[in-house]
Design a protein around this nucleic acid. Sequence first.
DNA 1: TTATTGTGCTTGCAAAAGTTAGCACATGCA
DNA 2: TGCATGTGCTAACTTTTGCAAGCACAATAA
Lengths: 142, 142
Amino acid sequence: MKVRSISTLGDYLREQRRNAELSLRQLADLAGVSNPYLSQIERGVRKPSAEVLQQLAKALRVSAEVLYVRAGLLDPSEEEGQEDRSVEMAIRADPALSVRQKRVLLDIYSSFRREAHEEEISEPLRESTTRNRAARRARQED
Amino acid sequence: MKVRSISTLGDYLREQRRNAELSLRQLADLAGVSNPYLSQIERGVRKPSAEVLQQLAKALRVSAEVLYVRAGLLDPSEEEGQEDRSVEMAIRADPALSVRQKRVLLDIYSSFRREAHEEEISEPLRESTTRNRAARRARQED
DNA sequence: TTATTGTGCTTGCAAAAGTTAGCACATGCA
DNA sequence: TGCATGTGCTAACTTTTGCAAGCACAATAA
């Protein structure tokens, strides 16, 4: 199987395992694979099957897709972009929404994104203004 | 590897191959796998790796995800449901949105979905009421 | 009729995935 | 200090995937 980079999948798995504060043996047991095999995977010596990736994902409580992408089994454009632009893209792609509804939702979403960014800079006044503007626009769509 | 049903993936592959009017040898050559192995896969004797599935998907000009689902490597709800619930899920997953913002967006989205559904039944009066309610709620979040 | 080509499949084998037994080292406790 | 336990890894082995060689049968042409 094609691994994106020898170090990508294995490093990610090791990182997630450490984040979860699990030893190699503990994760292997949870995932139902042998601990030497998990060690080999983490070090890039072996390329695990998708089923093993599923088991590891479940044990680490991450999405299997994340591991598939890192293992080269799914295209990143189908997975990575989801987090950045997934709300925008999802709204645009939703067949149940009219063009108008999409525009309203996208505007509100954009305001919220801007607002969340400005909350980091701590400007509560701007926040209130932005939200009023978004709500007014929603009403004007009637 | 876990195959959803012995007959599901293999039957699907054989069906797609016949739709494409390819012999077993032709598809195997296109996909870059041996023809006996393809025969075994179609009959459910062997369970192919995800990489082989990628190759077959490309040769058959279908999405690899479709084959992954049939092979039990992806959940159908994550692939088929994507279109239905992707806006909801995307909003929930977006780290840039606060809990409150998420709730607002989800409420508006739900209203729009209901509204679009009711547009199909042709009730313009209900449409206007629903939109006003959604906008009012957006304001109340200040 | 025979010879050729096409089709799907069988069987033995090679390569890769995955496991078992055990090693070297670290840590904790009496 | 010695012993027990935990940790990650090595190497031999087992199982599974995928291939190569070839078989049986069907279709076609001379």
